[in-house]
């Protein structure tokens, strides 16, 4: 399964959640990390968790139900099992 952490403005929450998921230490230099994951619309691969799920980070300033439907729809098109997490809403 592919797990996608989606963030709009709160980059910190998404990276923190993804790093916690992967049991990684939170990066010390947050600015560099922000710059490396900041391009909108890109799926940044962060690693694989203990259950072999692939973890991705996605930055989109247009987070709404259409984005959710789009990701779910494309996962069906390509037979990919995905889980979408919006840490900013939690």
């Amino acid at each position: 399964m592919k797990i996608i952490y989606v963030f709009n403005k709160n980059f910190y929450a998404a990276v923190k959640a993804a790093y916690l998921h992967l049991k990684l230490d939170f990066p010390e230099n947050l600015e560099d990390t922000i710059n490396s994951y900041n391009e909108e619309g890109n799926f940044y691969y962060l690693g694989v968790d203990i259950e072999l799920n692939e973890i991705y980070l996605l930055h989109s300033s247009k987070c709404n139900y259409i984005l959710k439907n789009l990701l779910r729809g494309f996962s069906n098109l390509y037979n990919e099992e995905i889980l979408i997490i919006f840490p900013e809403i939690l």
Binding site: E40, L67, L70, I82
Partner: peptide
């Protein structure tokens, strides 16, 4: 524009 990019990236990067 934004979602088209995400859709292409889903196909190329995830699938």
């Amino acid at each position: 524009a934004e979602y088209t990019k995400i859709a292409y990236n889903f196909a190329f990067q995830l699938a």
